[in-house]
Amino acid sequence: MQDLKLRGVGQEIPFRKDILSPKARPEMHAYANPARFLKLARPLTPVFLFAGLMLILAGSYAGLVLTPKDYLQGDSVRILYIHVPAAWLGMGGWSALAIASIVQLVWRHPLAGVAARAIAVPGALFTALCLITGSIWGRPTWGTWWEWDGRMTSMLVLLFLYFAYIALANASEERTSVSRATAIFGIVGAVNIPIINRSVVWWNSLHQGPSITLKGSTIAPELLWPLGPTLLGFSLLFGAIVLMRMRANLAEAKREARLRRLAAA
């Protein structure tokens, strides 16, 4: 009956194992216990957030001021320091979401669905950012805002997959984690990721081929180096957003469980 007692403000309220899913058996995994996850996530969130923002600021300054112009594109080349991280996080976001979906379906890990739900919104945001920056770059470079080329179309499909995932996640009764049907959709949607990646190799496309491959980079080092800080910075920012959203969802579940217990008492 210890759990039913209302505690003072600011005091820690222990998580009961049945908050996320009554069927889950959290004692089987080290981080399946949300309390243990929160212990790690709480100090990591500000570290990710501030390190990320610092790197983004430093990388943007370098990319806007310190690097030379491109011989053909002129100053419009500088959009690459945002466009490339946005593309990487849009695609990386869905890859992480698909892995979380597999972990949820196979191991029934109670935090996997929480993580997948938290990834979907920033994933959609960065995919949209990638499409917008690409369009802004395309106008002066190619002479068009938009063409139905393989790379652009498959990236737009990824944005719609994110929208569908968010809608599906919100349509189910699960509020903190996601339903099994949503997790299955997360796995099926992963089919688009290799298609986006290979679209410029398989098909004649307006979008150029990959610049950075295993064989090296066709971007001159003078222009390439700010991309490292912005890539890492936006990735850390993405991580911070995911941790914040996971914590907010868990806090909400905790509050609801507490209200239910109070109502029952």
């Binding site: 030379p68 002479g143 307006l206």
Partner: peptide, 19 residues
């Protein structure tokens, strides 16, 4: 209508000839 297709090479102007 004409569209310019950019290739995957990016470099500063002074490197153009060299590369």
């Amino acid at each position: 209508n004409l569209l310019a297709k950019h290739d995957e090479r990016y470099m500063p102007p002074e490197l153009e000839g060299k590369m």
